[in-house]
Design a protein around this nucleic acid. Sequence first.
DNA 1: AGACTTGTGTAGCGGTCGCTACAGAATGAA
DNA 2: TTCATTCTGTAGCGACCGCTACACAAGTCT
Lengths: 180, 180
Amino acid sequence: MTDHVLEHGVVGLTLRPVAAAVGTSDRMLVYHFGTRDDLVMAVVLRTEERSIAAIDALPAASGVRAGVNALWRAYQTEPLASGLRVYLQAAATGLLGQEPHRSGARAGGERWVGAIRAYLVRCGVPAERAPRVTALVDSSLYGFHLDLVTDTPDELAQGVDDLAVAAAALADLSLAGRAD
Amino acid sequence: MTDHVLEHGVVGLTLRPVAAAVGTSDRMLVYHFGTRDDLVMAVVLRTEERSIAAIDALPAASGVRAGVNALWRAYQTEPLASGLRVYLQAAATGLLGQEPHRSGARAGGERWVGAIRAYLVRCGVPAERAPRVTALVDSSLYGFHLDLVTDTPDELAQGVDDLAVAAAALADLSLAGRAD
DNA sequence: AGACTTGTGTAGCGGTCGCTACAGAATGAA
DNA sequence: TTCATTCTGTAGCGACCGCTACACAAGTCT
């Protein structure tokens, strides 16, 4: 089911088509998940797990700049590409903003950010500077991903590399002893 | 109608409720706009216009860092808050990704980015560096806005200020004569 | 005056939605 | 065996969806 949603998006997730895709009926989905919202949330959570695992499996790059660019390339391949798209849909449509989904989504999101932070540290970001660099990289990658639908690959590659430079600069600030 | 959509989101834009909100019938909406998709696109375009006008009306701040933070504050107040939300919904759900909407959306998005670039230049970003700084700031603000639903205001304020520092660092690179 | 384009209301079509009532099959406990 | 719990298929409910057919009013042009 998660595969099907990753392919077709979460906004148009309706019981009957997804049930047919997995060889069962809408009746069964409601029986096992209770309600459609619960089903959506289960899919979102599983999507988060897969994405986190994909980031954890990423080999460390040499340096922050290379790491950010490698992260972006990973975001454009499966399973992260579809996973991020589903997560963005859920966040943009406000599905994640209302309880009880909000708590679960926040926990999953934090683990996701944690995976990115761990990766950036592996790439050489000093630990005490990692949270701030991570916040920048994480939200920026969200934005760049949204630009995928309109911008050209060239423009995006340029933009992401600028992000990498900026992230590296931010990481260097503490090493140079400068206050923020 | 745009007001109503800005308030209720664009994902659940259905003819009858929005028609009732503006004192007409779904019959009339279809008559004037042709189809629902055309109506959605008209609303999105008008939303973009309003947002661009709001950015153009922003007073220049002293320095890149202050400018980015001021921009973020503007993004959290009307009309930019609702406008960005509608735009993000349209982008995340893939509505902007399919022709013929894609061309129009791309044009509107470029004008939006252009307004941000002009503002950043007013805040002191060197002109030759403005496109790269703008790409970073624009996409990052997208991402931070998505985090609004889960993160706390404190965390976000911290993250945006880090973005401001990074943008300033990126803007300074060319002044220092360093290659990117 | 008569034809015609433009705008508006009423009613309803075919379809999909989430969800449920009901009956039956399978399975394990007594 | 008998009973109870767990699972699954069929049918359908009421609501809403985008959209259209049709009748009719108000101009506008010839």
